[in-house]
Computed example of a mutant assay.
Amino acid sequence: MSTPDRTDLARIRYETAKDLFERGQYRDAVTLLDQACALVDRGTPLGGEIQIWLVTAYQAVGDLKAATRLCRKLSRHPHITTRQQSRRLLAILEAPRLAMRPEWNVNIPDLSSLEESTASDRKGSNRPLKRKPRPLPPPKPIDPSEINTQDNRFVWVALLASLAILSSLLWLA
């Protein structure tokens, strides 16, 4: 296999691995990123980018030792951007874990059983449940005696001010 073919294959596996990672399939992403690393020169910018994603995937899987080891190796990468990113990730990976009180955590309930029960309640209907919107209350009528109909002479003041400005401009010209 020639080098451009290997690079194209590595790029395809890399993009597929990113999609899998973003969908939460971390183990599959690690596998594809490992394969992409084997196909590309690790010292290139693409190789560094793939390895940075591999560090993140290792962390998502829970393999912090492999993530830290690879991150340390990447801190000596020839590409400066990869070195910077690896140093930032290494600082995150080596940061001390904070003790968290239980009331700080939010427990998200499992709603899969709820979805099954509502589906059985519909008796085979695949239509989503629709609620009828409540009608809006009619607007309150406006009492004509509360409307301010008195002229506050703002228009006349603005007109006089604009005439004064225009006349002074003409006088200066």
Rank of each mutant, 00 (worst) to 15 (best):
I52T: 06
A38K: 11
R69V: 02
K140D: 11
C37E: 08
E94H: 00
V55S: 03
D110G: 11
D143G: 08
C37L: 06
P45G: 01
L129C: 09
P109M: 01
T31R: 13
N152K: 11
T16N: 15
R72M: 04
E94P: 02
T118V: 15
P96Y: 00
T3A: 12
T16P: 00
L70I: 01
A67K: 02
I80G: 01
A173W: 08
L46M: 12
I147L: 13
R27M: 02
C71V: 02
D63T: 09
A161V: 12
R27S: 14
Q59K: 13
S113R: 15
P102K: 12
E116D: 11
Q35T: 12
R134M: 10
E49V: 09
A95N: 06
R83I: 06
T68S: 10
T81Q: 09
Q25C: 02
L114N: 11
R76Y: 10
P128E: 12
V40N: 04
L129R: 13
L114H: 12
R83Y: 06
L70W: 06
Y58A: 00
L111N: 11
A57K: 05
R69G: 03
K130M: 15
I92P: 00
K123P: 06
K73I: 03
I12T: 15
G24R: 09
L90V: 09
S2E: 15
S113D: 10
Y14R: 06
T81F: 00
C37G: 07
A161T: 14
N126Y: 10
P4R: 04
